[in-house]
Design a protein around this nucleic acid. Structure first.
Lengths: 273, 273
DNA sequence: TTGCTCCTCACGTCACGTGAGGTGGC
DNA sequence: TTGCTCCTCACGTCACGTGAGGTGGC
C-alpha cells in the first residue's frame, strides 16, 4: 500500500497547518513516508496520523518539540511514561503558578501597598550557622529552598544540634538581575557542624539591615521587596550587598501560607543613632 | 527627591532581570525617570516600583506587552477593568483547553483508536437549509459555532420554521491547512427563510460521504478525523471537497459532552455499489 | 489551458537571553 | 588603580506565520 496522503489531505486528517507540517519535516520530527524526488511533493502514510496526533496533543500542552521528539523516539514504555509524567507535573506547576499570580494580582489591584511604616532598622550580629550554598536559577528557587531546608534540619538533628534561631537566606543581586546567582540557606547553631552532604558550617556576616515583615506565601513577596526598596531608596540609605530573608514562620511551621512570616533584610548604611 | 535607583537596585527591588528592564525601556513600557545624558545610565524612581509590579504580574499571566502598555495607559478605571477581565477570561479559556488536552491525551495514550469498522458510506442528497457562512479562524471555531447555532435556531423559530433534520457544518480544507477558511453552519428546513442577521437560505449540495460517528466533546475530534481519513486513504476513495459535520446531538441537546454525537463526513468517490 | 496544490527561500514575530566589546563610578 | 556596574550593538531562541516567486498535476 503506497503512501496516499498529500500534505493537504494529511492536514485535513490531523487538523495541523501546512506550515507546521513542513516545519516538523524540516526538524525530522514527522518525516513523510515518501518524498517525490522530482517535485519535492510530500506523501504521508495513513499510519502517520497517530504520530501526528501525539504531536498535536503535546504541543497543545506546551511541550517543546525537542522533548516531543525524545518522547517519540523513547525505546521503552517506561521512558515515555517518565517524559509524560514529568511534563504533566511541570504543567501542574505552571497552573498553580497561574492561579497564584491571579490571586496576587487581585491583591495588587485591590489593596494598598504594605505600609512603609512597617520598616524597621536593626544591626544583625555575626552568626554561626549550618548552611547550604549554591548557584541557582531564580525559577527553581522555591524548589531549591524546600530541598535545602529539609536537608539542613535533618542534618543538624542527626548531629544533636539545636537551631539557635529561625532559618535565613542570603541572596546575591545576580539572582534577580540575571535570574541566576549565588544563594545560601542557613540555620543559626551554637556549635560547628560536621560537614555532611551539602551542609557546611558558615559564619553569616554582621549587617546593618532595613527590615520588613512579609506575611503570606512567597508568590507576592516582590511587593514587600518593592515597599522595602522604596523606603531605603527614598532615604538614600542603600549600600551594596546581598539581600537576606529570615523565615520566622514558613513551610516548616505550617502548611497554610497565610501563617507564614518572612523578614526581608536590605543592607543599609546606618548612622550612629 | 531625585530618582535614586540604579538599574541593579531596581532589579533587586522588583525581581526583574536587567535584560527585561532594558527591553521595557526600549519599548517605552517602563521608562527610567532619569537617563544620564553622558553615560546612558538609567535611574528609576521609587514610585516606578508599582508599575513594574503590575508588569510582572501580567507577564506571569502571559499578557502580551502591547496589551500591558494599553493597560498602563488606559485613562479610566473602567477601561483597565475591561482589559483585565478580558485577559482573565481568555486565561480561563486556555486553562480549560489545557485540562481538555490532558484528558484527551489520556484517551489517546490509553485507549485503542476508534474502530475503522465504524465507517459507513452514504449518499447525502441536496438539502434546503437555513445557514450562516463566514470565513473564520480555526482557534475561534468553537466560539463561532456557539454563536451561529444560537442565531440559527432563534431565527428560524421566529419565522415559525421547524428544523427538518439535525444541524450540520461545511468546513473548507483551508480552515485546517491555513488555520483560517470558509465555514458554513446550517439547519435543514422545509421552506425558504427570510434573510435576517447573518442567516440566509442555502442549498447544501449533494455529496457522497464516508461517515464516522464521533462520541463526546470536540476536543478529541481529530482522532475521529484521523480514523476516517485513514479509512478513506487506505481504500483510495478520496475526492476533493470540504469535510462536513452533522450534529446529531450537541450542546443544543445536552450540557454533558459525553452525550454528544457528531457525524463526520469525508467526500469520497463512490462506485455504483 | 486554467486554477489549484505544492514547493522553497527569506524574513517576521514575540519576549527576551547571550555574549562581545567597551566605558563610567567608587 | 582595580573590579564592578552599566552601556550598546548584534545575534540567537522557539515555533511557527507571512508573503514572494515559482512549478507540478488534474
Amino acid at each position: 500500500m503506497a503512501a496516499p496522503l498529500s500534505i493537504g489531505d494529511f492536514s485535513r486528517a490531523t487538523h495541523m497547518s501546512l506550515k507546521a507540517l513542513r516545519h516538523y519535516h524540516r526538524l525530522g520530527l514527522l518525516v513523510p513516508e515518501v518524498i517525490d524526488p522530482g517535485t519535492g511533493y510530500r506523501r504521508y502514510g495513513a499510519n502517520q496520523i497517530r504520530d501526528a496526533q501525539v504531536i498535536s496533543r503535546f504541543r497543545q500542552l506546551g511541550m517543546p518539540l525537542a522533548e516531543i521528539r525524545a518522547l517519540l523516539e523513547a525505546p521503552t514504555l517506561q521512558g515515555r511514561q517518565r517524559l509524560i509524567t514529568g511534563h504533566l507535573d511541570r504543567l501542574e506547576g505552571t497552573m498553580h503558578q497561574t492561579a497564584a499570580a491571579v490571586a496576587s494580582l487581585r491583591d495588587l489591584l485591590a489593596g494598598p501597598p504594605p505600609a512603609t511604616a512597617e520598616v524597621t532598622h536593626r544591626s544583625q550580629p555575626e552568626t554561626l550557622a549550618a548552611g547550604i550554598s549554591d548557584v541557582l536559577d531564580l525559577a527553581l528557587a522555591s524548589v531549591w529552598y524546600q530541598g535545602a531546608i529539609g536537608e539542613l534540619l535533618a542534618t543538624i538533628a542527626a548531629q544533636g544540634v539545636a537551631p539557635a534561631g529561625p532559618p535565613g537566606g542570603i541572596y546575591d543581586g545576580d539572582l534577580f538581575a540575571r535570574e541566576r546567582g549565588p544563594a545560601t540557606l542557613f540555620i543559626p547553631v551554637d556549635r560547628e557542624v560536621i560537614p555532611a552532604g551539602r551542609v557546611r558550617t558558615e559564619v553569616v556576616p554582621a549587617a546593618e539591615l532595613a527590615v520588613i515583615v512579609h506575611r503570606g506565601g512567597h508568590d507576592g513577596i516582590d511587593r514587600s521587596y518593592g515597599a522595602l526598596a522604596e523606603h531605603v531608596a527614598s532615604r538614600a540609605l542603600a549600600v551594596e550587598g546581598p539581600t537576606r530573608e529570615y523565615y520566622l514562620a514558613g513551610r516548616h511551621n505550617s502548611a497554610d501560607p497565610a501563617d507564614w512570616r518572612t523578614e526581608i533584610g536590605w543592607p543599609i548604611f546606618r548612622t550612629g543613632a
